Computed example of a mutant assay.
Amino acid sequence: MSRSTADQRLANFQAIPVIDIHPLLHGDDQARSEVAAELGRAAREVGFFQMVGHGIDGSLREGLITQAKRFFAQSEATKMERYIGLYHHHRGYVPPGEESPDPAKPDMKEAFDLAFELPSDDPDVLAGTPLLGPNPWPDLDGFKAPVATYYAAAYQVGRALLSGFAMALGLAPQQLLQYINKPPSQLRLIHYPFNPDAEDAQGIGAHTDYECFTLLLPSAPGLEVMNGKGEWIDVPFKEGALIVNIGDMLEIWSNGEFVATSHRVRKVKEERYSFPLFFACDYHTVVEPLPELVARHGQARYSALKAGDHLYAQTIQTFRYLRERLARGEIKLPDDAREVGSLGQHGKHKETP
């Protein structure tokens, strides 16, 4: 498919596909190939889909939601004991107003962020690699086990999905998994408090995700996706489904065949929760258009970047405490840091007057 054809299909989509990935997890080669083809169509034509048949049991989902409600019900002072700015590997409590893809429009939600667990004596942690390290688990009885169990289950589904995306690109199923060993894949527990004046308030600002893709467990409607015309398309809430969207790294690997579609959360009046797992590749992975895709397209459409540095640079530009550390000279942006929102559909529309 030519790039112009892909752009036209992105411009025209008005709905989000639903894909049953059970055959990808448990089927034979033919069944897996058929699901991979569906994944490829969704990644090329929308950049988003709803995923069912993922095998993450309802009890695991409910366990995660229950613990999130317990955590956010604590006092502000207790939650701030795990404030994300107290740590040097970007994990912990994110208070309202801390995060904003656009600094002029802070996101009015709170979150607790954790990621792939690494011990303090891991060589990359000892070397001070950003975003890697142990999780600062809250001092809340019964919190860690159900949250960690959900993370492990979603992470394994993510590995299976990456193999499906590889097949959709005409690659061997395991080709991209060699870059997934101890990635800074982050799980966020997000809480949107009740806000009766939310008509014109922004939940999460328009953005693309920085990693390979995202697995989102929502608890209510509110997510919108930008099509190729710049129109915002609603993502309906589907009980038990996970929402998947393509991120920056997979867009680059695919040389633009797959698109990191811009999305946002809008008009959130009711109290709600949301749980994205941002599936990343290893920090030191150099991501560039794969040779097979460059040969197919005749040219490389993206320059190479280090996956972890890209993620870290975007994070620095998004979180207040990191912007303050940057201003004080305590940290610096990685070389070749890109502006937030410079990739994906949102980046294309920012370039268009």
Score class of each variant (00 low, 15 high):
T5M: 06
Q8A: 15
A11K: 11
I19Y: 10
D29A: 08
R32G: 00
E34I: 06
E45F: 12
G47L: 07
Q50N: 00
G53A: 12
K69W: 13
S75G: 15
A77R: 10
M80F: 11
Y83I: 04
G85P: 02
G85A: 02
H90V: 04
G92H: 09
P96L: 11
P103Q: 00
D107S: 07
K109R: 15
L114T: 10
L114C: 14
L126A: 11
P130V: 02
D139N: 15
Y150L: 08
Y155K: 03
Y155Q: 01
A160M: 09
A160N: 04
F165S: 06
L171C: 03
L176Y: 05
Y179G: 01
K182C: 15
L189C: 10
F194K: 15
D197C: 06
D200G: 12
A201C: 06
E211G: 10
C212G: 02
P221T: 00
E231I: 01
W232A: 05
W232K: 04
D234N: 12
E239V: 12
V244D: 05
A260R: 04
R264V: 02
K267G: 01
E270K: 15
H284A: 12
E288C: 11
P291L: 15
E292V: 05
Q299K: 15
A300P: 11
Y302V: 09
L311N: 01
Q314P: 01
F319R: 11
R320A: 12
L322W: 10
A337H: 09
H346R: 05
K348N: 09
K348S: 12
K348M: 14
E351Q: 15
